[in-house]
Computed example of a mutant assay.
Amino acid sequence: MNHLILFAHPNPKSFNAAILETTVTSLEGKGHRVVVRDLYKLNFDPILKGTDFEVFQSGRKPADVEVEHDHIQKADVITMIYPIWWSGMPAILKGYIDRVFSYGFAYRYNDEGVPVGLLAGKNGLIINTQGNTTDYYDSIGMTGAVKLTTDTSIFGFCGIEPVDHLFFGAVPTVDDATRQGMLKTLRERLDQLF
């Protein structure tokens, strides 16, 4: 199985980096092919420009977007790993989605104006870290809001089948043993899914 991981955290020593390493090791250990697109390391340009629209409308693609389209087309599973910042994803990942999950590639509208996902047949997994506890975010409705925004309104809209969405809460304040338990939970879930 071909896995594409979209990673969005600027600190290579972060817990998100440990999640990335655990995910790659687990998947490759089971014989899966894994490609990681570390958006910060790539210095991916997240700004959707007017010139991007002009290029898309002419039937071409900006060169950096074409590279990402190739990775997505080859993927059976698309995994996003990122922290929840201000109730959403880091700007670099949002910009990636704005530019790469483009009209005519990730979705289109049919003659009745109904959206059609063009990435059907692919699975999606999201792994998030949060500053507060998962129970707190559940209680204020943020967990549901994040899932609606990402699982339904991004993956589902583009035809990608969400297979799971993992939340690891209170990451900055828990001890290392708790974080190791989170990584164990991640490995177990990856084994169940793939």
Results as ranks from 00 to 15, higher is better:
residue 70 D to M: 13
residue 168 F to Y: 15
residue 12 P to E: 10
residue 41 K to Q: 12
residue 140 I to Q: 01
residue 11 N to Q: 08
residue 114 V to M: 13
residue 115 P to M: 08
residue 103 Y to H: 13
residue 83 P to S: 08
residue 175 D to K: 13
residue 53 F to D: 11
residue 42 L to K: 12
residue 27 L to T: 01
residue 190 L to V: 05
residue 162 P to F: 02
residue 74 K to T: 10
residue 160 I to T: 05
residue 100 V to K: 11
residue 164 D to V: 01
residue 27 L to M: 02
residue 60 R to H: 14
residue 174 V to I: 15
residue 57 Q to L: 15
residue 90 P to W: 01
residue 159 G to A: 09
residue 175 D to E: 13
residue 176 D to N: 15
residue 44 F to E: 10
residue 142 M to N: 05
residue 119 L to K: 04
residue 72 I to W: 02
residue 115 P to D: 02
residue 15 F to K: 11
residue 80 M to W: 00
residue 152 T to E: 10
residue 36 V to K: 03
residue 68 E to S: 07
residue 54 E to F: 07
residue 194 F to V: 11
residue 187 R to K: 14
residue 15 F to Y: 11
residue 62 P to G: 10
residue 17 A to T: 14
residue 30 K to Q: 10
residue 84 I to C: 08
residue 31 G to T: 03
residue 107 Y to D: 06
residue 52 D to T: 09
residue 163 V to S: 02
residue 172 P to D: 09
residue 37 R to I: 01
residue 82 Y to I: 03
residue 153 S to F: 03
residue 177 A to P: 00
residue 83 P to C: 07
residue 90 P to K: 03
residue 158 C to I: 00
residue 9 H to L: 05
residue 82 Y to M: 09
residue 52 D to G: 04
residue 179 R to A: 08
residue 58 S to T: 08
residue 128 N to G: 01
residue 109 Y to N: 10
residue 84 I to T: 11
residue 40 Y to V: 09
residue 100 V to N: 06
residue 149 T to N: 12
residue 3 H to W: 10
residue 127 I to L: 12
residue 74 K to L: 11
residue 21 E to F: 04
residue 83 P to Q: 04
residue 60 R to Y: 09
residue 27 L to F: 01
residue 14 S to Y: 02
residue 15 F to H: 14
residue 124 G to R: 04
residue 159 G to H: 00
residue 188 E to T: 14
residue 137 Y to L: 06
residue 95 G to S: 04
residue 131 G to K: 01
